[in-house]
């Protein structure tokens, strides 16, 4: 929401500056500010309705429900922090956190590195719109379709990937079926889908780096590696931080790929936190417990985003 109000405010500042007359300004600015506020509120209003109805109230209600026992059919009963104490003793919760972290590490690690590579290629080598567009294609396919596609291609018995593996004389791999492979496979599927999009965001960041810096680096005799680490990376940092914050939050919330393929199995190997929440709420009608899990996830994500912004200084640019 703040991003919406900010341009309005700065626009009014700018109009004030062009006015120039210091004496009349304070009087005028009050009325004009009031006028702006009205207009601003008018424009914000629809978004505020959406925010209140679809985010604020449900979040508050979710927090309330996390202190209750609620099976959806019937009234919630207040049970205090019992859900939370139960969660901390719940092995499956800790398992879910571990599995989710493993997924996030694999997903974000590979995705960011590959996307950065792709962005550099887009920036330097592949200048045709067609190739740049093609990189984005996997992202245009719906999540569930992507998951199903890979689910069939990686199938143990009938999948084309295993046919090729077995044709090369190697043992077949139970990509979604084995405990070791399930999470890496799911992470890979999502890397495949999102890398083009992430690359596009980073590519936009690359384009904002002034060209003369590269020229100077070149004149100083910097090697391409040195240029990358000393010019590109520092100047790309704000964009990378934004990309990381967004992708890490998205990555923590992985659900659809798991729901379509392994459903949390084998045993508990891919029961990520969102899957566990879903299972508790919609499978076992334990909405209170599920809400408590969701609140914990909410707090974790808020912390992660805060730490990322704080330590990677995502709101400052080295260009200034």
């Amino acid at each position: 929401m703040t991003t919406l109000t900010k341009p309005v405010g700065s626009a009014s500042e700018r109009s004030r500056k062009t006015n120039g007359h210091q004496g009349r300004q304070s009087k005028r600015s009050l009325t004009s500010r009031m006028g702006d506020l009205k207009i601003a509120l008018f424009f914000i209003f629809p978004a505020v309705i959406g925010f209140v109805a679809f985010f604020l109230i449900p979040t508050i209600r979710g927090v309330y429900l996390s202190f209750t026992e609620y099976s959806i059919l019937g009234e919630p009963t207040w049970i205090g922090i019992k859900n939370y104490t139960a969660i901390f003793a719940d092995e499956l919760f800790w398992n879910a956190m571990g599995v989710t972290l493993q997924y996030v590490a694999l997903n974000i690690g590979f995705q960011t590195v590959i996307a950065l590579g792709l962005a550099l290629l887009m920036h330097r080598v592949a200048k045709s719109t067609f190739i740049r567009g093609a990189l984005l294609l996997p992202f245009l396919v719906a999540n569930v379709i992507v998951a199903l596609l890979w689910f069939w291609m990686l199938d143990y018995q009938l999948g084309i990937v295993n046919e090729i593996i077995s044709w090369m004389g190697l043992p077949r791999v139970a990509f979604f079926g084995s405990e070791q492979w399930a999470i890496p496979t799911i992470a890979f599927v999502n890397v495949w889908r999102h890398m083009g999009y992430t690359a596009l965001l980073i590519f936009a960041g690359l384009q904002s780096i002034p060209n003369h810096l590269y020229e100077v680096a070149n004149l100083d005799g910097a090697s391409p590696t040195r240029t990358f680490w000393s010019v590109t990376m520092p100047l790309l940092r704000p964009v990378l931080v934004l990309v990381l914050v967004v992708t890490v939050i998205g990555s923590f919330q992985v659900f659809d790929t798991v729901a379509v393929t392994t459903n949390g199995g084998p045993v508990n190997a891919s029961r990520v936190i969102q899957m566990y929440i879903y299972q508790k709420a919609f499978g076992e009608s334990d909405f209170g417990y599920a809400s408590a899990l969701a609140v914990i996830l909410f707090v974790i994500l808020a912390l992660v985003a805060f730490l990322q912004m704080k330590f990677l200084k995502g709101n400052e640019s080295d260009l200034d």
Binding site: W152, Y156, A174, G177, E179
Partner: peptide, 19 residues
């Protein structure tokens, strides 16, 4: 078959494929 190999194609389809 191992449990890990049953994720995906249904038992019936594997039967249909002569497995």
């Amino acid at each position: 078959p191992k449990l890990e190999t049953t994720v995906g194609a249904s038992m019936a389809d594997s039967f249909g494929a002569g497995k």
